[in-house]
Amino acid sequence: MEPVSDAPKPPVFSIKRGRLGNFQFSLETDHGRLNGVVRVAVAQGQSSTEIEDAAHRKIRALVEAFVTAEMTSR
């Protein structure tokens, strides 16, 4: 049997690209899980990398706002 550790587990982040610029994401920590969808406007000729970078920026902003709200509500 393995010893029980009180050390926090690292956050687990996953993202799944959908259709038409929709990206589903999930962030799981010791405190809970945050699931959501961000939508990115897709312009003709825009590369997949540019679209994914825009989605990552939106998700990062949402997660940062969530963490900030959690920290200030204590």
Rank of each mutant, 00 (worst) to 15 (best):
M1L: 08
M1D: 05
E2C: 07
E2H: 10
D6V: 06
D6G: 07
K9W: 03
P10I: 02
P10F: 00
P11C: 01
V12K: 11
F13Q: 02
S14M: 04
S14G: 03
S14H: 01
I15A: 10
I15Q: 09
R17T: 05
G18C: 08
R19L: 09
L20R: 13
G21R: 07
G21Q: 06
N22S: 12
Q24L: 07
Q24E: 14
S26E: 12
L27V: 14
L27E: 02
T29I: 06
H31Q: 13
H31I: 05
R33Q: 12
N35R: 09
N35F: 05
V37F: 10
V38D: 04
R39I: 10
V40L: 03
A41I: 07
A43I: 01
Q44I: 04
G45D: 05
Q46E: 14
Q46I: 00
S48H: 14
S48C: 13
S48N: 15
T49A: 14
I51W: 02
I51H: 05
I51A: 01
E52S: 11
A54G: 02
A54E: 14
H56M: 09
H56C: 09
R57H: 13
K58L: 14
K58P: 01
I59H: 08
I59D: 05
R60E: 10
R60G: 03
L62T: 11
L62Y: 08
L62W: 10
L62N: 13
V63M: 04
E64Y: 07
A65N: 15
A65C: 11
V67C: 15
V67K: 12
T68V: 06
T68G: 14
A69Y: 13
A69M: 14
E70D: 13
M71H: 12
S73A: 15
R74S: 07
